[in-house]
């Protein structure tokens, strides 16, 4: 499936899980400025395709990505990161998205945040 189709599917799945997704959100926190493909500002959950085609790699350079992932390790936010080299099938997108959302729920539950 194409990136556009995958984005559409992710939006549907995140929405179905109760998130209020904003597409093409300008994320600007602690000096990290990136455009996220989908982001729920309240729940601080989202998804992002990192592809050279749209210049994402310029934003998600190694340093930005490291600092972004460090914040995810701490549980500040959760963004499903999809690399352009990942082979996208509908089933893979579904499995990855559901797994990611379930992992998010587990982390929230561990940190006492109600969903």
């Amino acid at each position: 499936m194409t990136e556009a189709e995958a984005r559409s599917r992710l939006l549907a799945l995140f929405t179905e899980a109760g998130f209020s997704m904003v597409e093409d959100f300008r994320f600007d926190e602690e000096g990290v400025v990136v455009d996220l493909d989908g982001w729920d500002p309240t729940m601080r959950v989202g998804y992002e395709f990192i592809s050279r085609e749209f210049g994402d790699q310029l934003q998600f350079d190694a340093q930005t990505l490291a600092s972004f992932e460090a914040r995810m390790s701490r549980g500040d936010l959760h963004v499903l990161l999809i690399d352009e080299r990942d082979v996208l099938t509908a089933q893979d997108v579904d499995v990855a998205c559901r797994g990611f959302l379930s992992e998010c729920a587990a982390h929230r539950s561990k940190s006492g945040i109600a969903r």
Binding site: M72, S73, H78, V79, L80, D86, D92, A96, G99, F100
Partner: peptide, 13 residues
């Protein structure tokens, strides 16, 4: 590979 990476789930599958 951390769990928020798409490839983590593809690897698991």
């Amino acid at each position: 590979v951390p769990w928020w990476r798409f490839s983590y789930w593809s690897d698991r599958s």
